[in-house]
């Protein structure tokens, strides 16, 4: 490895993490507190700066906040997609029940990821807002115009849900009464839905001492934008390494929010004991272990398995190397752009 190669490797190893600070409001309040302390000491009047943004009353100086990422989701692949405009902002009214208003702020959807950011407005008469540690939606159901069940927490069964793994980010306080968090779901292949319908009847306010359940009938309808219905994807062709051994890579597909690698058909036992990683642009990627990469039965003695990785079309790899290892084989398969 020469010095230039070392330089390139190190530059690529450090992702460009440049992004806007999510703490502007908190910093404004911190500085206001510092100014007030000094003014109380010196007994001068405070001149209000023209460009101060925050107008809400937060804790000063040494208090900390319950913070989470201001981005739709803190996955680097999702963030990259959002930075490249792969996000749909939604303009809708709040739906309010028992003092809790909820609406969808923004969302994104492609073959493997669905992220929906909800905004909550909580009436202080419902619960002491300062006591809220987290907000979560219970028993959410998401389906599309063709009645494809994107996700159904209420009657969850693996076979009847397209999503194989879900979660939600920790709630972030936006202002005195409003919060945001993101529901995310992952699948092998979400459909090209044109409309999404979201329904739920219970929201949990996780407070310091107890959880308060809020009941209502929230129903949202989302129009999926054209670029998310007709999704961009880049396919790759194999240039070496796929013909030897028993493990074959069937498909490599790069999307806005991830890379899908499908292997098989093989015996179920063989697919159970695989160690897989991807190398692209001199970086290593491990398979998402939060995506249930299930073994699918094609016919009586053939199976396949799908993995996803956080490499996207925005990373623009010319070459993708897939390393697959088990007890019997250790192979390197190279794919280049079609």
């Amino acid at each position: 490895m020469n010095n230039n190669e070392l330089d390139e490797f190190l530059k690529k190893s450090f992702k460009d993490d440049s992004c806007d600070s999510p703490f502007t409001d908190e910093i404004d309040n911190l500085m206001n507190g510092l100014y007030k302390k000094r003014k109380r000491r010196n007994k001068f009047l405070l001149a209000i700066p023209i460009l101060l943004v925050s107008t809400t009353a937060f804790a000063v100086a040494y208090n900390t906040f319950n913070l989470s990422s201001v981005n739709i989701d803190s996955s680097s692949a999702i963030e990259l997609a959002v930075q490249n405009g792969y996000i749909q902002h939604v303009d809708m009214e709040m739906q309010t029940f028992e003092g809790v208003g909820i609406k969808v702020e923004r969302f994104l959807m492609d073959d493997i990821n669905l992220d929906i950011t909800f905004k909550y407005k909580v009436d202080n008469n419902t619960v002491n807002i300062d006591d809220i540690k987290d907000l979560s939606i219970q028993d959410i159901i998401i389906y599309d115009e063709n009645n494809n069940i994107i996700h159904n927490s209420k009657n969850y069964s693996y076979e009847n849900n397209l999503s194989k793994a879900t979660g939600h980010t920790k709630v972030k306080k936006i202002s005195n009464e409003t919060f945001e968090n993101t529901f995310f779901a992952q699948a092998n292949n979400f459909p090209n839905s044109q409309k999404l319908y979201i329904e739920f009847e219970t929201v949990n306010l996780n407070c310091k001492k107890a959880t308060k359940k809020i009941n209502g009938k929230w129903k949202f309808e989302l129009d999926v934008p054209e670029n998310m219905v007709n999704r961009e994807e880049v396919s790759y062709k194999c240039t070496s390494g796929n013909n030897e051994g028993n493990i074959i890579v069937n498909e490599v597909k790069l999307t806005n929010t991830g890379l899908i690698v499908q292997i098989g058909p093989n015996s179920e036992e063989l697919l159970n004991n695989i160690d897989i990683e991807v190398i692209a642009n001199n970086k290593k990627y491990k398979a998402n272990n939060n995506l249930y990469s299930d073994i699918e039965n094609i016919n009586s003695n053939k199976f396949k398995r799908t993995y996803s990785f956080n490499l996207t079309i925005y990373d623009e790899p010319n070459e993708i190397i897939i390393k697959i290892k088990n007890d019997k084989e250790n192979k390197k398969i190279v794919f280049t752009r079609n």
């Binding site: 989470s68 990422s69 989701d73 803190s74 996955s75 680097s76 692949a77 999702i78 987290d134 979560s136 927490s153 969850y156 194989k164 793994a165 879900t166 979660g167 939600h168 980010t169 920790k170 990627y285 998402n288 272990n289 939060n290 249930y292 956080n310």
Partner: peptide
């Protein structure tokens, strides 16, 4: 993540 819920601030990637 587990399969149904998570309150992790950071995605696994």
């Amino acid at each position: 993540f587990d399969e149904k819920t998570s309150v992790s601030d950071y995605r696994i990637d």
